[in-house]
């Protein structure tokens, strides 16, 4: 992530946080460094054949019996699904 003010302003708009000019300057630089550091997970994930883990005990067995695990499938929300994800307009997603 380059320190692009227009991107920061878009993120601030989505997060609904009004930033002062001084904050924009320093937070922009911080986000650039943090994003550079976090990018390591993208590289690491490319070499893995793993599904995403959202709930740590998504294992069958005593930690969570499957019958006790009510789940809502995103397929039940066909009007909101785009390419396997729920599109969230306020995070920049939209369903055409």
């Amino acid at each position: 992530m380059e320190c692009r003010k227009e991107l920061l302003e878009r993120l601030a708009e989505l997060a609904k946080i009004a930033l002062s000019e001084e904050e924009k300057e320093s937070i922009c630089k911080d986000l650039e460094r943090i994003a550079g550091y976090l990018r390591a997970v993208g590289e690491a994930a490319k070499e893995l054949e793993a599904e995403p883990l959202y709930y740590v005990w998504d294992l069958p067995g005593p930690l969570r019996e499957p019958s006790e695990s009510p789940k809502v499938s995103i397929e039940e929300l066909p009007t909101k699904v785009k390419e396997g994800y729920v599109a969230v307009p306020w995070r920049g997603g939209s369903v055409e």
Partner: peptide, 20 residues
Amino acid sequence: VYALSEGFRDEFYVAATKVR
């Protein structure tokens, strides 16, 4: 918000959940 945004979530959030 950045890590979850369209265009970046695969590289950040989804990748992190796979590493997890």
